[in-house]
């Protein structure tokens, strides 16, 4: 589509050049990982040259990936799904199960996790395709509870007498051993770049246009001949599979995990990150996850109030900043242009 002649109507540069923007952001993160210790940026990503700093950095990247996957389901398709954390857990448990006793490496485990997630998400989404809003949300809440119960009770998944995953297989890629937190950063960053490219491709496709039309006005969308269920199902399945991929990365980088890791707290974290960052932007997850991971580090002495603060943030963002922090950037851009 040719760019609009009126500069005011022209989309911002990062939307016109989606893939270049992704390359720039991922490249900037990579440069920071490589040279961050010499830059001395005060506290942007903690002390990245220390093990604890790298651990928090990986946590941010994983949450950013999970939240960006959730953007497909909630941001684009408007499907209120509570199941993202559970699919993340499914990825972790299935990948561990597929690799713990065999010679398969983590790529096979990740593939197995994504295949199982696609099958389950497709069956579920087709089953409840007519459910909207509250009914869909509650159905996904029910699915999450069933999955969490399976993680707790099916011992074959953990391979132990308890439900805890322990000593998960480390990441080896064609002879390159990613056994340190520093190397984990590169693996997770590559996965995040892949997800951003997938989301950008979806955003530029007819699928996204159909999903947004159905999300914003299903009746009009149907009168235009758009199938009102298919875009929602497709994006739910895609988002769930990507969540499972990050779950697999989580377990192979951390080596441990419990059903509680993939419970309510993570589910809420995904919501907070996406809504705080910006529900209707593919960059919202990245920004929101940074806030969720790093802001508590500045709340010295207020650690026990962190969850109260996130709860208040959710309510306040809905009242004051419905477009999230991305909305603030848009407002600033608009002011500068004027």
């Amino acid at each position: 589509m040719p760019p609009a002649s009126d500069p005011a109507l022209r989309p911002p540069a990062w939307r016109q050049h989606h893939y270049l923007a992704i390359g720039a952001v991922v490249g900037a993160i990579a440069l920071y990982v490589q040279f961050g210790q010499y830059l001395h940026l005060p506290g942007l990503f903690g002390s990245i040259h220390k093990q604890s700093g790298l651990s928090a950095f990986n946590e941010w990247l994983l949450l950013a990936g999970l939240t960006t996957s959730f953007y497909l389901v909630f941001g684009l398709a408007g499907r209120f799904a509570f199941s993202m954390a559970a699919f993340y857990g499914l990825g972790a448990y299935v990948s561990h199960w597929a690799t713990r006793t065999s010679r398969h490496n983590f790529l096979v485990g990740t593939l197995a996790a994504m295949v199982i997630a696609v099958l389950l998400a497709t069956a579920f989404a087709v089953l409840v395709r007519k459910a909207h809003h509250f009914y869909f949300a509650v159905a996904t809440l029910g699915l999450s509870e069933v999955l969490l119960l399976l993680f707790q009770r099916v011992r074959r998944l953990s391979g132990k007498s308890s439900a805890e995953i322990g000593n998960a297989k480390k990441i080896d890629l064609f002879g390159w051993a990613a056994h340190t937190r520093y190397r984990h950063v590169w693996v997770i960053l590559a996965a995040l770049a892949l997800v951003l490219v997938v989301v950008a491709a979806v955003e530029r496709s007819a699928l996204a246009r159909r999903a947004v039309a159905t999300r914003d006005n299903p009746t009009v969308a149907e009168t235009l001949g758009i199938d009102s269920t298919r875009p929602g199902i497709t994006l739910f399945v895609l988002g769930s599979a990507l969540a499972a991929m990050f779950g697999s990365l989580f377990v192979h980088t951390r080596s441990v995990g419990t059903p509680e890791t993939f419970g309510l707290k993570l589910g809420i974290a995904v919501f907070v990150a996406l809504i705080l960052g910006g529900l209707h932007s593919m960059w919202g997850g990245l920004i929101g996850a940074w806030f969720y991971t790093y802001i508590p580090q500045y709340l010295t002495g207020l650690q026990q109030w962190t969850q109260v603060i996130w709860g208040a943030v959710l309510v306040l963002v809905m009242i004051v900043l419905p477009e999230g922090l991305v909305g603030v950037f848009r407002w600033l851009r608009h002011r500068i242009r004027r």
């Binding site: 809003h133 109030w305 969850q307 109260v308 959710l314 309510v315 009242i319």
Partner: peptide
């Protein structure tokens, strides 16, 4: 509906922590 439901989620989180 989404906006209000998210606000109730925030309330749930705050209430539980309090």
């Amino acid at each position: 509906v989404h906006v209000v439901v998210i606000a109730t989620l925030g309330l749930a989180l705050a209430l539980r922590s309090l």
